[in-house]
Nucleic acid binder design. Structure first.
Lengths: 242, 242
DNA sequence: TAGTGGTCTAGACCACTTG
DNA sequence: AAGTGGTCTAGACCACTAC
């Protein structure tokens, strides 16, 4: 395309910039399963050909998705679909900065009804049918946190404990492999709470111990809210870092 | 500069990209007080002339600083030095999303000695002389949080309550106006704690209520740590959001 | 109307990785 | 040596703001 005959459509009001359109078309392709997790995308020039834009424009779109954590770019190698991760921040031993081994255990996977917070976060009416998944996080073998995730039962028909365990209790993997959905987390909200009897037992702390609560919604790449979740963790031995 | 005679220095090993150099030179100019808070920078083309690079390269450098929150870009108007803000996240009424009026009250401004956490965060030895500033945050008139800030006394010679009050208790303004220092916060660490007697009294909650603790370091634009701070807030009525 | 930031292009060269 | 992402340029046009 010559510079002097730039397409007039470039200037239409209300139109998204080309690099955003490129981003969205790549998102669409990802959602349609064109590339698997960890797989390489075509090169910038190939994508530029495919979308009919210049390499620099493709680049800007890819950079956006890399900043969102959806893609990983490696110089000399290519652009890859990022491996899905549960993405629950990381626990650190106070002071120390070395990563600790964490494990996930599935406690509950059952239907439930949306409370006020969950309904608001997911844009559903109160009482809507949800799937509730409850997991226990261990750090270096010791109980550290409880995570509850809520998704609309309708969208996740067929979700059960078996599928979750198959994915090593990584829900993001389940959303991706079983339901073709890639999600990105919104900024979390923080609260301080108190451990109830059941929570204290599961986390191995005394009842009425303070717990850190982290709540957040996650949405599809199109921005629609899909998942609401709450993490409750002890912070006597570890620190929570976003 | 013609394309074919590209400067060979562009490829020297260990050399920073030009747009990073541009960023750093702008940071330097800001640190030297070349522009005041809220003031407009020269246009992209003027800066390009000044630094001897193309407009696109200047643009990339400016975009970086805008992403860091140091600059604000407004189409059709120009690029401005961002107003300094205390930047302590925002409290929100659970559910509601409208902004609430907040106020700051200075409680203490005194010398103290670095504890372990502060010393580690600031890269000082334990027991180093610090200035400790303690403030009370009110949201809609009600006590919400206590903030303690720690900085090296040596670097902030002459810091006192008067200077802080003159700046409406906004410490970032003091750092900027009185000490020519612009800081950017690192990601915070979160903990759940319990209100002591004094804290409970100041925050208007019962003793032993759970409190959310948010700790973080802030560094100069060159990345050196300058300030360590801890916020303790009640989350019974409000939610903390990063 | 002039000046600003925002988008887009085409083409060059560099650094890095793999064969 | 070939292919990839990363940087940089020069120049065009657009959208927004102010005068």
């Amino acid at each position: 395309m010559s510079v002097t005959s730039t397409r007039s459509s470039v200037a239409l009001p209300g139109r998204q910039p080309l690099y955003i359109q490129v981003r969205d078309r790549i998102v669409l392709a990802i959602a349609q399963g064109e590339w698997d997790s960890g797989e390489a995308l075509p090169s910038e020039f190939e994508l530029a050909d495919r979308f009919g834009v210049s390499q620099g424009t493709v680049r800007k779109g890819l950079d956006h998705l890399a900043a969102e954590g959806v893609l990983v770019r490696r110089q000399g190698m290519g652009t890859f679909i990022a491996e899905v991760a549960d993405d629950w921040g990381c626990a650190e031993v106070s002071g120390l900065a070395r990563p600790l081994e964490t494990s996930l255990e599935l406690l509950v996977c059952a239907r439930s009804n949306a409370g006020e917070e969950a309904a608001t976060a997911l844009g559903l009416r109160r009482g809507a049918v949800l799937m509730a998944v409850k997991r226990l996080v261990r750090v270096a073998g010791e109980p550290f946190a409880l995570i509850e995730n809520f998704v609309a039962a309708e969208r996740f028909e067929g979700l059960d404990a078996r599928r979750i365990k198959q994915a090593n209790c990584n829900l993001r993997t389940v959303w991706w492999r079983e339901f073709g959905l890639r999600v990105v987390s919104a900024p979390p909200q923080f609260r301080a709470g108190i451990a109830g009897r059941e929570e204290a037992r599961l986390l191995g702390v005394e009842a009425d111990s303070p717990l850190l609560e982290v709540a957040r919604t996650a949405g599809g790449l199109d921005g629609e809210p899909v998942e609401w979740s709450v993490l409750r963790c002890r912070t006597d031995r570890y620190v929570y870092r976003v």
